[in-house]
Design a protein around this nucleic acid. Structure first.
Lengths: 247, 247
DNA sequence: CAGACGGGTTGACGTGGATCAACGGACCCT
DNA sequence: AGGGTCCGTTGATCCACGTCAACCCGTCTG
């Protein structure tokens, strides 16, 4: 089976343990006791490395595992017959990939590394088995899935009712907040994705994204240099997001 | 507690049983043995009736249960501070409501009945408990959540990359398919929601929705009379959805 | 070092859908 | 039956964003 072969090629028998991982409090194991963590360690024994632009899985691949981003970042996207691409999300460390595959036992989107990255492979059958025994794990997993649903709803709101600048401001604030949660600066960061990918995610064309960046810069809200973003006025960005209120 | 009081008022001690329900094969119990079904029967013992425009839950309500639509239909929506509303979904019989609440133990959207309706109340703590014992139930529940994620992704694609007529055609085809699955005509049905609600869901204004309906009618694709829809050329609708390919 | 290529910016212009406004029919209430 | 309200339709106008196109810069390659 293709995916097994690929897995074999890429997996490195890296010794990992959730119990040792510094992403513990953000990732699947939140709230597990040391005892429970030890059980999870056995489950999550394989990691997988991917180079930039390499796919973790593709639409149609059989679903066997979900993945936690250990390092690097990913995008997920739906590609239509015609080749048009809709980015459905960007994932950074500790975030979970692959939940879409559970329903049809087949992945329904593509997941691609935006930079050299590493994921923890969580075999799904085993996760279900363990979560029947470990209640906090079960509950945590349900929360992770639910959080994904809530996130998708807020993207729907963004796409359905915000204008270009509002979308981009909301996007920057969301990134900022996620970087903060990971201990990075919330005012300065590096975009891992292109203007086109941002545009696809936000339902805009790359030119519109680029222009919005420029306008934010003119107004002193941010400074942009290619992929490097520096947020100068975070309240100003918040004001833009909630301004469609004011109209 | 407000929601408990409301529950008391509305719940009718109706004898229900998943094992007797004709929605079995569409709903949570798919694939359960008779034995397992009996256990589910005990869990899902309360139903709740709602009149048109009544809310099943609102943003901020404590999360205690998920719901299966037994009769009627609902919309879920996010309401922003400014009062702007984004409809995130329409639910018909056998579909599950409330999954958004798991992550924060608080509902993150409003669920409102579009007509007089009835839901089965599934206390979540008990569902988790039972699904630790009944593997097929656990798996089925995970599939339900995953399906919601997949559905949300396709709405994101719709909002992010389709034009007005494509969105509406996709919407009609989706309804048609869901009606079919429930044994109704797939060419003739009654819309339960207003043009404004459709518009909110599709990221369009009601005038645009109305105009698109009119244009479909002019072209002989459908006939519309207020909320009554008759699909005359289902292939024509499919062609519209996939046409943004052709461009 | 030239040349190609991918990513980003910016300008000029066109258009799909929003906005504003008027109107008509269906359904509600008393 | 009458009057109000909600909902849907349609027309006229406007504008945010898409489209097309030129150009810049950094990087890779032979």
């Amino acid at each position: 089976m293709a995916s097994t072969a690929r897995l074999t090629v890429l997996s490195e028998g890296l010794k990992t343990a959730c119990s040792q991982c510094n992403l513990q409090e953000l990732c699947l194991p939140i709230g597990l006791s040391n005892n429970d963590l030890a059980q999870l360690d056995e489950l999550v024994s394989v990691r997988k490395r991917l180079k930039r632009h390499q796919h973790l899985y593709r639409t149609g691949d059989p679903f066997e595992a979900i993945y936690a981003v250990r390092a690097g970042s990913f995008k997920t996207s739906i590609v239509q017959e015609d080749g048009r691409e809709q980015v459905t999300g960007f994932q950074m460390t500790s975030e979970i990939l692959g939940l879409d595959g559970i329903s049809a036992e087949t992945h329904t989107c593509d997941a691609e590394a935006l930079e050299d990255s590493e994921v923890c492979v969580i075999p799904f059958a085993k996760l279900e088995e363990l979560s029947r025994q470990v209640e906090p794990l079960q509950h945590q997993f349900h929360k992770v899935m639910s959080r994904e649903i809530v996130r998708d709803h807020s993207v729907m709101m963004l796409l359905g009712s915000m204008r270009a600048e509002e979308r981009l401001a909301a996007f920057l604030l969301n990134l900022s907040q996620r970087f903060t949660a990971r201990g990075f600066s919330h005012t300065e960061f590096h975009l891992r994705m292109t203007r086109e990918e941002i545009g696809s995610y936000l339902g805009l064309k790359l030119e519109t994204v680029s222009r919005a960046f420029s306008r934010f810069q003119e107004r002193g809200l941010i400074s942009v240099q290619q992929k490097h973003i520096h947020i100068l006025d975070i309240d100003g960005l918040h004001a833009i997001v909630s301004q469609h209120t004011a109209l």
